[in-house]
Design a protein around this nucleic acid. Structure first.
Lengths: 216, 216
DNA sequence: ATTCGTCCTGCACAGATGTCCCCTGTAAGA
DNA sequence: TCTTACAGGGGACATCTGTGCAGGACGAAT
């Protein structure tokens, strides 16, 4: 296995990026422009090196005919690079009103792909953006994404998404003798108590299986 | 939804075929050649029609810059891209010893795929499993994954991964007059003070751009 | 000391490619 | 009847783009 230099690797990565981001490979000049190489020949040198080392192929005298053969790690870079089964597509449903949840999942504003590894191989998962600080002591902050496995029941102490009125809310689940206690993780907030008479199982939307927060 | 003519559909299919089979879109003349259209203008007519109907987009005056937007059925054509387009492959480097980081990234034990949306389109990102409670008040718990953009500098107050001794540690970054202060988010823990003399920029491994926690 | 690979600048050039203009003809609507 | 969308021919033209040549600087290997 021929090793790549830093520079060659950067070229290869830019090509790969271009293909994935735009759908087509870059030209020599685009590569040069991106890496600060003023001469097309400088770029060509790299391409020849990459070609010689078996990382890509090209067709003569045609524009944008770069084809990746291997990733920088040396893994064969087949056409569908990450036609990965490890991925799950998760609809992000924003704020959700009553019956609208299922609809919202059908026509989501947005979807995210998550590695199955991160949600424990679950299925039937959707995502929600958290608003409010009610779970702050459980490390779930305003603006975080939570990933929720759809289910109608939950175990005591689990973090669930429940329907209260027509708002989706994120709380700890504590079923008790006379009522269901939805416990915030915030000492400034009082639990929500729902008499068992008023409680229908459909009010549990699911159990939180993952939390993601963007920083920076 | 605009309907396509037989001919337009054929053009669209050839473009799609070309992208999948060769990895890059065809030129006007390649399309014409394949469909028996002798004039580039004839082909251009079709492309304009397809563009107008929202099935593809192009960039002006650039070769092979066709991008499919929908399949002939009208489904959004995220087929090949969406499966991997928005994804970034992130190596998970466990606990990391001194110089070993770069190596660890080259030969990671494990990789995760993350939607670019979740890490803000960053590149050069790696993942770490957090051990310890030192950032607990920042909502980063023992066992969480943090996603880190590799970089050697950071802004005051950012959550960074730094090398202290030969351990990677996650802290707030506060450069001060005489020393660098690495501040835990845990009132029971003292900040780590590193005299500026002992500090090398290589000690910053990167800035945390995302946090993920599995629950349940 | 010499060779080799890497990594560039600069430039010229031919061939590849998209755009534009002017045409012909058909079929479907208004 | 007039207009519009479709389907194409033919060709001029400016620009894009890959290739090739001449060189230079550097570091590692021989």
């Amino acid at each position: 296995m021929h090793k790549l230099t830093q520079r060659q690797k950067a070229v290869l990565e830019y090509i790969s990026d271009s293909i994935h981001a735009r759908g087509y490979p870059p030209t020599l000049r685009e590569i040069g422009n991106h890496l600060g190489i003023r001469s097309t020949n400088g770029v060509n040198d790299h391409l020849r090196a990459l070609e010689r080392k078996g990382y890509l192929t090209r067709e003569d005298m045609k524009s944008r005919t770069l084809r990746l053969m291997k990733t920088p790690d040396g893994k064969p870079s087949s056409r569908p690079p990450a036609a990965n089964d490890n991925l799950i597509e998760i609809p992000i449903v924003g704020r959700v009103a009553a019956g609208a949840l299922s609809e919202a999942i059908e026509q989501p504003d947005d979807t995210v792909h998550i590695d199955r590894m991160l949600i424990g191989g679950q299925r039937d998962v959707f995502g929600l953006r958290v608003t409010g600080d009610s779970m702050i002591e459980a490390g779930i902050y305003d603006g975080d994404f939570v990933f929720v496995r759809k289910q109608l029941t939950a175990n005591r102490g689990e973090v669930i998404i429940a329907l209260v009125g027509d708002e989706a809310t994120c709380k700890y689940y504590y079923p008790e003798r006379e009522h269901i206690r939805l416990q915030p993780a915030n000492k400034d907030m009082a639990p929500i108590l729902i008499p068992k008479n008023d409680w229908r199982s459909t009010q549990i939307l699911g159990v939180v299986v993952g939390v993601y927060r963007r920083l920076h």
